[in-house]
């Protein structure tokens, strides 16, 4: 049944040296997880990229909110304002097009309004990372609450909640978010909330299945006998016990959210111009694909690398947390 007996526990006490890592150690130690990740080259690469991109996002956010792009203007270019006398649609350095040769001042070229593509790409990190993290957090919290309540109480509560999330999943999620954003607002804030809502079912299912299996464990019964209330049991016993699969799913979900947010911005639902975002840059580049094809290439590469990093790290995390998985 999966629950350990006293005999097992005594056996394990016997040879503490040779025994495999226990569940507590696997779940508990952040250091342990990091060590495991470190052994895995691709996961380490993923982690470093995530740290780098997040640092860029934090830095650009500071520059945007507190400095009003002062840093960008001093060392790069203004990411939003059209430059005076700037050349539009310049190709990347080393290439040539009908708009002239690429120049070193704009290594990736300029967009249709003469703005530096590299600068806009760097400042687009802010939207992607914030939206990715925020949307996942909303889905995580919502899904955890619904899944935990649903799995713990079972019966009618379970039925109603599960039918509802099922229905939520039945509308193709991009369509649902678009409908949601049409009703509430086209801004990136609503994109985050929308993506968060559609990722609720993912976490709900995960937590619910964990809860259903944990619910019958002896220590839950013990906690009940000791007088713990329902919400305490859910909060202090059941949710912490589902920590590791949720962590893995959350990491992967950030990648998925970044993809959806980019798709939404591409359709015009998300960060509104002139705020730079990767999806919206791709949307703007569509009209110039023939004369300036590289304009459509760069933002996509930014999305690709970021999402790959989250997928690599998520996969590595899964291997590190679950001793049974071997690729």
């Amino acid at each position: 049944m999966g629950s350990r007996t006293v005999d097992d526990a005594i056996d394990q006490l016997g040879d503490a040296e040779s025994r495999p890592a226990t569940v507590e150690e696997k779940n508990g130690g952040l250091l342990y997880i990091l060590k495991e990740i470190h052994k895995d080259t691709s996961a380490t690469i993923g982690l470093y990229i995530i740290l780098f991109v997040t640092a860029v996002a934090v830095f650009t956010s500071v520059d945007y909110y507190l400095l009003d792009y002062a840093f960008a203007e001093r060392f790069l270019y203004h990411p939003e304002r059209d430059p005076t006398g700037g050349q539009r649609l310049l190709p990347p350095v080393g290439m040539e097009s009908i708009y002239g040769p690429g120049v070193i001042e704009h290594p990736l070229g300029t967009d249709h309004r003469g703005r530096d593509i590299l600068t806009r790409m760097i400042y687009g990190t802010r939207i992607a990372i914030t939206a990715g993290f925020a949307a996942t957090t909303i889905g995580l919290v919502g899904g955890t609450i619904i899944g935990a309540v649903s799995g713990y109480y079972g019966g009618r509560v379970d039925d109603v909640l599960q039918r509802f999330t099922e229905a939520l999943y039945a509308i193709p999620f991009l369509v649902l978010i678009i409908a949601f954003m049409t009703a509430f607002g086209r801004d990136v804030t609503f994109a985050m909330v929308g993506v968060g809502i559609v990722s609720i079912p993912v976490f709900n299912r995960l937590i619910r299945s964990r809860v259903v299996s944990v619910r019958e464990e002896e220590y839950i019964a013990a906690a009940k006998v000791a007088g713990a209330k329902d919400h305490q049991i859910i909060l202090y016993h059941i949710i912490p016990n589902s920590f590791s699969p949720v962590l893995v799913q959350a990491t992967l979900q950030i990648g998925v959210s970044i993809l959806i947010i980019a798709g939404l911005s591409f359709l015009g639902f998300g960060a509104q111009p002139p705020t730079p975002s990767w999806g919206q840059m791709l949307a703007e580049s569509r009209d110039f694909m023939l004369p300036a094809p590289m304009y459509s290439v760069w933002p996509g590469i930014a999305i690709l690398i970021t999402v790959i990093a989250f997928n690599l790290f998520g996969d590595g995390l899964q291997d590190a947390l679950d001793p049974r998985t071997e690729n």
């Binding site: 990648g255 993809l259 980019a262 798709g263 591409f266 999806g279 791709l282 580049s285 569509r286 694909m289 023939l290 094809p293 459509s296 290439v297 933002p299 996509g300 999305i303 690709l304 999402v307 790959i308 997928n311 690599l312």
Partner: peptide, 22 residues
């Protein structure tokens, strides 16, 4: 891995640039 990490609409743009325009 690359397949799950690439935005589909970007693949579309690249395909158009390469196979239609080029």
């Amino acid at each position: 891995l690359i397949g799950v990490s690439t935005p589909s609409f970007w693949i579309g743009l690249l395909l158009i640039i390469f196979f239609s325009f080029y």
